[in-house]
């Protein structure tokens, strides 16, 4: 292209593009899902279909993540912000991840001396904390402790683990999309922290990382 495309136009174009991808995905998904339940089909085939549906869901998640990372949601999202309690949202995420942590012998500890409300889009906020706590679980090794702290003056949430932390040389790249510091083959798209930061910024907040003096990682989301 010879001329730079105005951002609004680009976003409209991408919006249509995502729409065009999502429709065939929807068709494939309903089709595959109705076959998964078909007990007349051979078991190995059904097993593959289950995996295919999961892959489709993953593409859809990627598309949603890309919208956030490209800033396509910025103008529209604000309209659906509602006041909600930080504690409540964090608790919902912990309730969901707790079984995974305890299966690995890890402890998830929530410390909340005071609670506060902020304007948020609840599902996106849950995704932010989910990404942070899920990372802490993945990189903590067995039987580690993960602490989640909620403060109100200023409003912030911290997720601390006692894992291997992040190598100093990589620390300033961890929020870049598709950057994966870990090379041990832990599952992930490399978008988790980039998306978390985009969600924090959508809420006029900031996500930062600091190594813990005693070892491990500290992620802090501070709201404006």
């Amino acid at each position: 292209m010879n001329h730079p495309v105005p951002q609004d136009e680009l976003h409209r174009f991408l919006g249509e593009f995502f729409h065009e991808i999502k429709t065939p995905l929807a068709i494939m998904r309903t089709h595959l899902e109705s076959e998964v339940t078909n007990e007349a089909l051979p078991f190995p085939l059904r097993k593959k279909l289950v995996q295919d549906v999961e892959e489709i869901a993953r593409i859809n998640t990627l598309l949603e993540d890309m919208k956030l990372l490209l800033g396509m949601e910025k103008r529209v999202r604000k309209h659906r912000f509602q006041p909600a309690s930080l504690l409540e949202v964090v608790m919902e995420v912990i309730e969901r991840l707790e079984p995974i942590a305890s299966a690995r012998g890890q402890k998830l500890v929530l410390i909340c001396p005071e609670n506060c409300t902020i304007l948020m889009e609840r599902n996106k906020m849950k995704q932010l904390f989910y990404n942070l706590i899920d990372n802490a679980i993945k990189y903590s090794g067995d039987s580690g402790a993960i602490e989640v702290l909620i403060h109100c003056e200023p409003k912030c949430v911290e997720v601390k683990d006692r894992g291997s932390g992040i190598p100093e040389a990589a620390a300033d790249r961890i929020f870049d999309p598709f950057v994966r510091v870990d090379e041990t083959g832990t599952e992930g798209s490399g978008l988790g922290l980039a998306v978390a930061r985009a969600i924090a910024r959508l809420h006029d907040g900031e996500l930062s990382y600091a190594p813990r003096p005693e070892g491990g990682a500290l992620f802090r989301v501070r709201f404006g």
Binding site: V50, E54, R96, L97, I100, A103, N123, K126, Q127, Y130
Partner: peptide, 21 residues
Amino acid sequence: TRLQLSEYLWGEEGLERSSNA
């Protein structure tokens, strides 16, 4: 499937869904 059940219970878009929760 686990994916279906987890979307049924939690529903949100964008969360990692194939969790063993």
